[in-house]
Structures are given as structure tokens and as C-alpha cells.
Amino acid sequence: MPEIRFSGYGGQGIIRSGFIVGKACSLYDEKHATLNQAFGPEARGSACSAQVVVSDDRVLYPYITIPDILVSMSQEAYDKFEPELQKKGLLLIDEDLVRPKPIRDKITMYAIPATRMAEEMGNRIFANLVMLGFFTAMSDVVSADAMRKAIPGSVPDRFLDKNLEAFNKGYDFGMALKGAKKEPSPQKKAQAEPKAKAKKA
């Protein structure tokens, strides 16, 4: 039963990120997902977070207690929420916006330049979708299929294609990173070698 916290600053689409993951899990992956948002005087620019509890059974206690996964898209949010992350938990950060402390307690950390990738697409507003693609690739919480079904209706229609593109960019970035971490298969090795040679040449 993973407990997830998405965090960043108001205006980045953090709550929306939690909403899309919860919707994907509960409507398209046949799991139960409860989303709660930190409801305080948060405004655009200050630290904000969304909590999602995902479970095969009905979620009883509605809030996260010790998050298994923390997604941080701002330094302030990282500083605020990193200390509560479960030992051996999963930490995903926007590498341009968060300067992480040394890794503690066997936490696994992966980084993506989500905002920069979104800016390359034309607008940093898509950074949360890049991060969601990355999240989908790096965690076992939700399937990419379910996420792609959950995005329509959760973002403005006129920007649906851009949002899906951003999701795919983040997802591909994550899958590539995962592939690179693993021992490359002989086939992939064979493909990789000529490229490496080509570079040298």
C-alpha cells in the first residue's frame, strides 16, 4: 500500500499530479486511491503538496503517515518533506530545482530535469506531466496505460496533446534511465556499441 506525496510550490500543478495518479489507479488500474491535499493558506509560490494513498483494498485512514514515495519539484518542498520519507523509500526530484542532501537510510533517488524539458517543449507549465511520466516509469504504482487514460479530462482539452507529449517524454526518460541501470541485454549492447564507436570516430 504505497503512500505518496507530490510536492512543489503552488502553481506547478502539484495537486493536479496527485489527482491524475489517483484517478488512473482507481478508474483504470482497479485499485483504490484516496487523494488529500494539504489545505492551508497555501498560495501560488509557497510549498504545497498532495497526498495519495494507493491500495488493493479500500483505503481507511485517509492521510499518509510515512510516505513511501516523495516527489519534489521545489527546494522548499524537498526540505519540508524529505525528512518524513520512509527508509528505503523512493525519492524523485526535479534536478534543476532541488539540490538534494546526501542520501540517507538507503533511499533510492532519481532525478530528471522536468522543468527544463517542459521549457524545451515551449512552456514550463507541462513540467508536472513530465514528472508524472517519470514517476510512472520509476515506481510500480500505476501503469502507463492507465495514466494515458486519466490525463484526458484532467487537463485543458486544448493542451491535451502537449500534456501527453510531456508525459511520454518523462516516461521515456525514466525507462531509458532504468534500462541504463540494468545490465544491458546482448541485443541492446550490440546496438549501443556502434553508436559508441561512431561517437569516438
Binding site: F19, G22, L35, N36, F39, P62
Partner: peptide, 10 residues
């Protein structure tokens, strides 16, 4: 209450 009101589920 606020918790159920602001809680999102299926």
C-alpha cells in the same frame, strides 16, 4: 466534514 469534503476518491 472537511476531510471527506476535500477527499478525492472514485
Amino acid at each position: 466534514d472537511e476531510c471527506v469534503g476535500h477527499m478525492t476518491e472514485k
